[in-house]
Design a binder for these strands. Structure first.
Lengths: 240, 240
DNA sequence: GAGTGGTCTAGACCACGCT
DNA sequence: GCGTGGTCTAGACCACTCT
C-alpha cells in the first residue's frame, strides 16, 4: 500500500491527494485520474477513494462533474466573487465592482506586518492601496500586503492596471491559490484622510474587515484591511 | 417502500427524517433508531440510511456518537455559544457574557417588523431589550423581536430574569429550536441614547448585526439587531 | 456480550459528456 | 459506445459504550 500509515485509510488518501496538489502534480483547473485509476494506483478500494474525493469536494478543494471527471478547484471570477466577497448592495443586487489603484510599491515590513504574514523581520513586502466602487461611488478603501518574494515583479514595474479580482490574478500570474481566509470585523471611525478618499466626513462609521488569506499548505500569503462605507451595502454572514 | 417518490433515494430518506423532527416524533436531544432499524423500517439498504444520516450530521441537524447512537441536535449553552455568537474578545479569550434586561413587553408589530417575521400586519410581538457585557463593561445593545403567539407567556408576567443564552431558553421553554440564521453587518454611528447605554459618546462607531433566525421548517421566528462596541472585541468570520 | 456507529470492501446499475 | 461520476446495495470487521 502506497499511502502512509496511521489513522483511517480514507484520511490518508486525502492527505496523499492534498500533497499532490500542493506539490503541483495536479494544478488548479486540472483533471485528476478517475476513481478507479486512483484506487488501483493507491491499492485501496474505489469506495475509499470516493469518500476521500467527496470530502475534498465538500471542502471546496476539488469539484466533480458527472461524465467528465474530478478537477482541482481554481479561482474563476465567479468563484472568487461568491466565496471571498461577502459585501452585498442593500437592495440585494450584485453590482459589478470596479477598482481604482492608489498605490502599489515594494518596501520592508514592520514588526506587525511580518508577524501577520509569518515572515522574518524586515522582509520585503508589496503594499497595494486601492478604492473599490460599487455602483459608481467609492465604497471600499483597501490596503493589501503580500510577501514580495512570492510575487516577483509585482510593484516593481509600474503596473498601472491590476485586475479587480486579485485571487484570479495571484493564481494565473504567480501560481498562488488562496483556499481559505479568516476575517475579523469591527466598526471604526474614519480618519480625515480615509474620509476624504471615500467622500465622507471625518469620524464617519466604517466597517473594517481585517482578513488573512492562506494557501492550501496553511501559509498566510495576504493581509488585507478593507474599510467599507456601509450606508448602501452590508456584509452577509450565514450561520448554520 | 415508505419513502415518497422522486429523486435520489437518500434525499427522500433525509426528507422523511427531517419531517419527523419537525413533527416532533423525535425531539431535540432524543435518540433516533439505529441505522439498521431505520433501514428495515423504510425498506432501503443500511448504506442509504447512513448517507442520509451523515449529511444531516454535516448540516448540524443531528449528531452521532459511536457506540451510543444518533441524536437530534439541541441547543446546549456550548453549541449556542459556538454556532451563533461570533463576537470574540480582542485578546482571543472567550469571556463569560452576562446580560442586563432593559425591557420585555408585548405590543403590536409595525409593517417592517411583521414583514421580517413573516406575520400578518398588526400581529402581536414580544420585544426584548438588553445589554450584554463582556468582561464587566457593556459592549452589546440588543433589540429582539419574536412573535407573541409562539411565546405564550413571555413578556406578560414581568419575568425579571431571562437567561443569557436565549436559544436554549426558546427550546426548553417553548419547544422552538433555531437551526439557522442570516446576519447582515453594517457600521453605524451611535445615537445619543444608544451611546449613553453603552457608555460612549454620541456618534461613536458601532457594529450593527441584523439577524433573522429561522427554524427547521424555514419560518423566521426571531429578528434581532445587535449594536456592538468593537473597541475590545470583533466579529469572526471564516471563509472556506 | 450485545448493540451502536465508523471503516473498508465489492459490485451493479444509472445519468451524463464526449466522440 | 465508452468512460466518467452518482446512486444503491450487501456484507465484513473494528472501536466504542453500556450493562
Amino acid at each position: 500500500m502506497i499511502v502512509p500509515d496511521g489513522g483511517p485509510l480514507y484520511l490518508r488518501v486525502k492527505d496523499v491527494i492534498v500533497k499532490r496538489i500542493v506539490d503541483e502534480v495536479w494544478r488548479p483547473g486540472g483533471l485528476l485520474p478517475s476513481e478507479q485509476k486512483l484506487a488501483a494506483e493507491l491499492g485501496v478500494s474505489p469506495g475509499t477513494v470516493r469518500k476521500a474525493l467527496n470530502e475534498l469536494t465538500a471542502e471546496n478543494l476539488l469539484y466533480r462533474q458527472q461524465g467528465k471527471g474530478t478537477f482541482v478547484a481554481s479561482h474563476t471570477p465567479q468563484r472568487s466573487l461568491f466565496h471571498f466577497f461577502k459585501m452585498t448592495a442593500a437592495d440585494g443586487k450584485r453590482q459589478p465592482a470596479t477598482s481604482r489603484l492608489l498605490a502599489c510599491a515594494r518596501r520592508r515590513a514592520n514588526r506587525e506586518e511580518a508577524g501577520r504574514l509569518d515572515l522574518p523581520a524586515q522582509s520585503r513586502v508589496v503594499e497595494i492601496e486601492r478604492i473599490r466602487e460599487l455602483g459608481g461611488s467609492p465604497q471600499i478603501l483597501e490596503r493589501i500586503l503580500v510577501p514580495a518574494k512570492l510575487f516577483p515583479n509585482l510593484g516593481k514595474s509600474s503596473d498601472g492596471e491590476l485586475p479587480n479580482e486579485l485571487y484570479v490574478f495571484y493564481e494565473e500570474r504567480y501560481g498562488i491559490t488562496i483556499y481559505r481566509a479568516n476575517e475579523n470585523l469591527r466598526a471604526i471611525a474614519a480618519t480625515a484622510e480615509q474620509a476624504k478618499l471615500l467622500g465622507l466626513k471625518a469620524g464617519a462609521p466604517l466597517l473594517e474587515i481585517d482578513r488573512t488569506a492562506i494557501t492550501l499548505d496553511g501559509r498566510p500569503v495576504e493581509w488585507r484591511v478593507s474599510l467599507c462605507d456601509t450606508r448602501n451595502c452590508h456584509y452577509v454572514s450565514e450561520l448554520i
